[in-house]
Design a protein around this nucleic acid. Sequence first.
DNA 1: TTAAAGTCAATAGA
DNA 2: TCTATTGACTTTAA
Length: 474
Amino acid sequence: APESPMSSSESVKSLTELVQQPCPAIETSKDGKSQESSEPPASESQSTTPLPLSGHSALSIQELVAMSPELDTYGITKRVKEVLTDNNLGQRLFGETILGLTQGSVSDLLARPKPWHKLSLKGREPFVRMQLWLNDPNNVEKLMDMKRMEKKAYMKRRHSSVSDSQSCESSSAGIDYSQGASPQPQHQLKKPRVVLAPEEKEALKRAYQQKPYPSPKTIEELATQLNLKTSTVINWFHNYRSRIRRELFIEEIQAGSQNQAGSSDSPSARSGRAAHSSEGDSCDGVDAEGPPDGKASGPEADEFSGAAAKSQGGPAEPASEAGEEAPRGARPSERAEPESLEDTDDEGRLRAPRHGSPPAPQRPGDAPETLPNSATEGDASTSAASTSVLTGESSYKSKESSEKISSVPSTSSTPAAGSQKANSLQSLFGFSEAASSRNTRDSSLRKKKAANLNNIIHRLEKAASREEAVEWEF
DNA sequence: TTAAAGTCAATAGA
DNA sequence: TCTATTGACTTTAA
């Protein structure tokens, strides 16, 4: 499963064939490019493909995706980035005309591609499109044409200040249209974007590390203390969870590719020059995550061990590392931060200046100092922790978590987990050796990983409580 | 119903 | 002007 460059290129070929054979239309799509461009990328989510490629082909993009072999998402994005930069093509243009996505989404996708097996059918679509695009010998040329056309249209518009329909370009046309329709009015109606202050983010991160899945009550408290809307806090947790997960994916991929030297399978740490080979991760994607079930354990477990090991490398970390129970590892996450950090005024009442955000119903000095008695949550293990979330106190449950998590891999019963176990150990040692060579980036990564562990724990616990059958030993 | 996945789109920064 | 980040929203999956 650890996809080697070889296998991926193979996949690429097969996909190419897959695409070309059943629908030669794509081959000749060169002619139909104008047609492609005319497709309004925004339409999206139609049952039929809105974008290029399959314009009139028999196969819809969904079908192609379904039939597609495993693709090397990382490799694909890498190549796409190269092509785009080499030819001075923007993400916006590429996204709108080729993928049917907005610039931001493209940026995100290119920067943090998820491994193929982690993607849903929908999520695979952009990658299949990218692959098809890469396979298209005229890809750049077409995009350049688009670019020229857009520019032309733009110039035209500029001259005739008021653009009428005229639209020939997909994206730009659509935008103009809407803007011209009601310029000012809606401007007012739109609710301003919330921008969390750094202190608020910090507080939320701390809260997350103690409890990735806060109870409604905790969320409520957080919202109150931070002076945020409950929905904002909820959204933040959702986003943070998924983004942390993705961060880990790419960290793993990158780490894996760095010391990809030999067979990705071999657990042996090819320490070689790859100072920080996180061997374990490379296999992450492999078995760990692969299994639909194993959302939890997999890579994260490895990550954890890695983090744990690293934490011992102490020296790299600015003093702060002096922590108490260093050997545990999970804790490392925050230790590094100066406690005071964002702890706001006294009792951790974080009143961060709401930047661009609207004058939220500023709660005067009242505010429940600290989270009242989060203990009532019933979740004993977290009670103490949540109280300190805002105060910045470092009573980390992480430590406790670390213990739990670390035992997970050793008790899991699945074969996959078994092999993983070995890798975990490998990675653990590999890390500790390389520890000293790591630095700041590591600490942040470590933080993320530690945080993610709590997340994992939560899920495992949840799973455990659901399936009595499984003997989870924490 | 809840959480995850996937996106959008506003914005910040280069 | 382009890319990166991120809060919010929509869709999908369990």
